[in-house]
C-alpha cells in the first residue's frame, strides 16, 4: 500500500484473506473501508486483491482447493471491483489489466469445466475475461472480441468433432481481415500442440497453468 499504518495493513490482510476464503461480503466491506480511508483503488487491487487471487490460483494448481472455491474467490474479487473499477483511470487500468480475453467452448461442444477453470485462472492472474459459455458459434467469438476490443480469443474443445469449428474460426478471421487483430489460443482434451500449429493458432495450453503462461507470453508480459 502507498500509505503505511498498522490498521491499513491489517485491513489489507482482511481483504486478502476474505478473497482467499471466497467471502464476498467481507471482501466488499474491507475494500470499501480501505477506499473510505483514502486509499487509491488501484493500490488496493494491486497490493491486496491480485496477490490473493494468485494464492488461490496456486492452491488450485496443487489441488488444495477446487473449482467452487476458486469461483467463490473470483466472485469476491468481482464484488470489490464493482466499487473499485469505476474509480480507476483508464491509464491505470491498462497498467493493472494484463489483457482482455474472450473465451468459450466452441460450437458443437457442451463441455465447459476445463474452460471454466482456465477462465478463472486467467482472471486470477489479472486478465479481463469475457466468458461466452459453451457451444459458442464461431461468429459470436468474433463479435464479442470486436465489441470489447479483446487481445486474445481463447477457445476450448473437448470433442474431436468440434475441432473443425475452430478451423472455421481461423478461416473467418482471415476472411474478415481480423486475423492479426486478435491473438488466438486453444486448449482442451481434443486439441494437441501440433494440431494448433497446423491450423495456424499461435497459442496452446495443455492445462490451465500453461494457458496463463501462454496468454502472458502472447501479449509479451511476464
Amino acid at each position: 500500500m502507498v500509505k503505511g499504518g498498522v490498521s491499513e495493513e491489517q485491513l489489507c490482510k482482511v481483504l486478502y484473506k476474505a478473497i482467499i476464503d471466497g467471502d464476498d461480503a467481507a471482501s466488499e466491506k474491507a475494500a470499501l473501508d480501505l477506499l473510505g480511508k483514502g486509499y487509491k483503488a488501484l493500490d488496493i487491487i494491486k497490493s491486496c486483491m491480485v496477490p490473493a487471487m494468485k494464492v488461490v490460483g496456486d492452491m488450485f494448481a496443487r489441488l488444495e482447493i477446487f473449482l467452487p472455491e476458486v469461483m467463490m474467490s473470483a466472485d469476491a474479487f468481482e464484488a470489490c471491483m464493482k466499487h473499485l473499477g469505476p474509480k480507476i483511470l483508464e491509464e491505470e487500468r491498462r497498467e493493472f489489466i494484463k489483457g482482455k480475453v474472450v473465451i468459450g467452448t466452441i460450437q458443437g461442444d457442451i463441455h465447459d469445466l476445463g474452460k471454466n477453470i482456465v477462465a478463472l485462472m486467467l482472471k486470477a492472474n489479472g486478465f479481463e475475461v469475457y466468458d461466452l459459455g459453451r457451444d459458442v458459434p464461431v461468429d459470436e467469438f468474433i463479435k464479442k472480441a470486436r465489441e470489447v476490443n479483446a487481445d486474445i480469443i481463447a477457445v476450448s474443445a473437448l470433442l474431436s468433432t468440434s475441432l473443425p469449428y475452430i478451423k472455421d474460426l481461423v478461416k473467418l478471421l482471415n476472411e474478415l481481415g481480423l486475423r492479426d487483430r486478435f491473438k488466438l489460443m486453444v486448449g482442451g482434451g481434443a486439441v494437441t500442440r501440433e494440431w494448433a500449429r497446423k491450423v495456424g493458432v499461435e497459442g496452446y495450453g495443455e492445462d490451465a497453468e500453461e494457458a496463463v503462461r501462454v496468454a502472458l507470453k502472447l501479449l509479451g508480459k511476464k
Binding site: L63, F66, L67, P68, G114, I117
Partner: peptide, 12 residues
C-alpha cells in the same frame, strides 16, 4: 468427472 471440479477432490 474431473478431480478438482464441482464435486471437489478425489473424495467428492
Amino acid at each position: 468427472p474431473v478431480v478438482g471440479g464441482f464435486l471437489g477432490g478425489p473424495e467428492g
